[in-house]
């Protein structure tokens, strides 16, 4: 599968090899018990990667930047507003979307301290750092320090709200539209929106 890469990861070489063997044994047992097939597992991963796209989040934000009425609907009822764009949030599980808007003097940051809840449909697969103990422990206590590690500076006067996703509500940050983008089309604006901007670790 092409989405698997070598590189930095959390597990040690030995424990990873051990886990690989355990998975192989488990899958073989489940196949033998007619619970599932390897093909079904592969299709599950393919379907996830096809549906969970950060481009979806970018479309939502760009639309909110160009259409004030949509922005109001998005902040009032996230599920209904993204459904207007044909995005199905409930593909994996019934979650409620709350969109939180950055503004002058106001910044938002998303975390899940208890596990790793994340709006997959809008942001794509979550990065390893989001699921890490370092992020989960520190985002709620030291959000400014977290932002600094991403090279993101918010002024001392800006109030940060950290959203800890402890129930089946998923959060998405609506970043401020960058200055000097008045002449850009909606499609051009979409290209400016970064995944980290939608988590709140970057400004756009």
């Amino acid at each position: 599968m092409s989405h698997v890469h070598d590189g930095a990861h959390e597990s040690s070489h030995e424990s990873s090899a051990g886990a690989a063997n355990r998975v192989k044994t488990l899958v073989a047992a489940l196949e033998a018990a007619n619970v599932l097939t390897e093909r079904e597992l592969d299709e599950t991963v393919e379907s996830f990667l096809a549906h969970a796209q950060p481009a979806n989040g970018a479309r939502v934000v760009a639309r909110a930047w160009v259409d004030d009425a949509f922005r109001e609907r998005l902040l009032a009822d996230g599920n209904a507003a993204v459904a207007e764009l044909g995005i199905d949030l409930a593909h994996w599980a019934p979650v409620r979307l709350r969109v939180v808007a950055n503004g002058p003097g106001r910044h938002n940051l998303i975390v899940c301290t208890l596990c790793s809840c994340y709006p997959l449909a809008l942001l794509g697969p979550s990065p390893t750092w989001y699921k890490s103990d370092a992020y989960r422990s520190r985002a709620v206590r030291d959000p400014r320090g977290i932002l600094a590690e991403f090279g993101t500076h918010v002024d001392a006067g800006v109030e940060i709200t950290v959203w800890d996703s402890t129930a089946e509500v998923r959060y998405l940050v609506l970043p401020e539209r960058p200055a000097g983008t008045e002449s850009l089309s909606e499609t051009e604006l979409e290209a400016l929106v970064t995944r980290n901007g939608l988590i709140g670790t970057a400004l756009v």
């Binding site: 599968m1 698997v4 930095a8 998975v23 192989k24 899958v27 592969d42 599950t44």
Partner: peptide, 19 residues
């Protein structure tokens, strides 16, 4: 913070997710 941010680092991780 990794470059490239692969969703899975090993085949078995993708399998665990799918399971």
């Amino acid at each position: 913070i990794e470059s490239g941010e692969p969703p899975f680092h090993h085949e078995w991780e993708a399998r665990v997710f799918a399971l």
